[in-house]
Write a protein that binds this DNA or RNA. Structure first.
Lengths: 241, 241
DNA sequence: ACCTGAACACCGTTCAAGT
DNA sequence: ACCTGAACACCGTTCAAGT
């Protein structure tokens, strides 16, 4: 959660009328600006209090105006999700003929995606149950699928590898941010530890035994552990081995 | 999505006053009844239209009454999530000293969990980003963790194996139900196929190449594929091998 | 083409009051 | 102990009207 709480409302942007085209005002709003403002509002105030009306206020516009630019809140959420995915850096594809380190690049994308999501932690709730069909989502999908196909996976497994990556990273980031806003990932982990330690004594023996192991190393380690598992699970499906 | 649309509203339950205890009326509502009615309302009308007020109407009660029994909507959602997890059958632990087929039982739990979730497809949106600390969630966690510890995994990996199971199954079920209500999983898959086929020609070469492979086999196969991956990823972390 | 005023049909939640 | 009436402070969305 980046702290931008000191930025205040956006400065009003003057309508500019070019002399050559006197009747045509620049639109005050664009989709890109709306999405940017939405991400900022989410970062500052969190998901629970986000609303179209508050977004309109922040943009210094009356709220029905937003509906000229987006069909409904869900469409705005699609755009926001795509913007988040767009912040995941994609490694360059290898030169034609060069052997590609598919596992390394897959891991790199996974880490970048986790980073992108955590940079917009308040947007996590709107990432689940949404097909990512925006340009950034498609680009990401195409890149991952291409990586796996290039490595020799059949099309089915390649497609599925992409989905596994998404499930894993979003699921993980979801847990990292599951204890409500305001707490960092590590602090959340400690609350969970606490909750487990307070469990009725003999009722959940394995869980209580776990409560210390749970916090002894950080979230990064856990992420890598799962990622390693994901990769070795994938590698087991590679045809020529 | 089970079809219960013919069931109609719940019959009014009479307040019963026992002669021995004349002043004490049976409460009209219990948490269990509220949760049952909520699941039914979700199944009949879907998540989007679910509200505390509609739930109260279905229960033939004025809506503030619900707040005597639950603190707020989020707490009700916690209870609903726990009820869904409670429908996942848990295999019996092996006798002490008997070798346990950990991978088989892990897979069994995963399949049962997917089933339980799909039986309440409309409740999927409220499963993400929630720690499952209700009795059923804890029991499930304890069972899975115990299974993995018994198999020789260290505590850390055992705990993480449980989380991976959750991410995977919820993520998968989330995708199965991601195209809005009313479509079955397989129909959704076809919409996605359609969407991919309509993509701009050369922009996403790997994705368009995939669009047929995507639908050639069913969701059950895909689920098993990912599950196999998950298991072999886990197995790779087993200390003594 | 883009924005606003006014309105519709809702929400979740609180709280004093009833029984 | 449990339920209700009435109210508060909101929502998302539509649509005729303005410029």
């Amino acid at each position: 959660m980046t702290d931008r709480s000191a930025q205040g409302p956006l400065p009003p942007r003057p309508r500019r009328r070019t002399p050559a085209d006197p009747g045509r005002a620049e639109p005050r709003l664009t989709r890109a600006e709306i999405v940017r403002a939405a991400l900022r509002l989410l970062a500052e105030q969190g998901y629970e209090t986000f609303s179209m009306r508050r977004l309109a206020t922040v943009l210094e516009v009356k709220n029905p105006s937003l509906y000229w630019h987006v069909q409904h809140k869900e469409e705005l959420f699609d755009l926001i999700a795509d913007a988040v995915l767009g912040e995941c850096p994609l490694p360059e594809p290898a030169e034609a003929g060069q052997a590609e380190d598919w596992a390394g690049k897959f891991a790199e994308i996974a880490r970048g995606l986790r980073r992108a999501i955590l940079d917009h932690a308040a947007a996590v709730p709107l990432l689940s149950g949404r097909p990512f069909l925006g340009p950034n989502g498609l680009r990401l999908a195409d890149r991952v699928v291409g990586l796996l196909r290039g490595a020799g996976f059949d099309d089915r497994t390649a497609g599925y590898g992409y989905l596994l990556l998404l499930y894993y990273v979003i699921g993980f980031a979801g847990q990292e941010t599951a204890f409500g806003p305001g707490e960092t990932g590590e602090a959340r982990l400690r609350s969970l530890h606490q909750a487990l330690a307070e469990l009725p004594a003999g009722a959940y023996p394995h869980l209580t035994a776990l409560s210390t192991a749970l916090t002894e190393r950080g979230l990064d380690d856990r992420f890598e552990l799962g990622l390693r598992g994901l990769l070795s699970g994938l590698a087991a499906e590679l045809p020529g081995r």
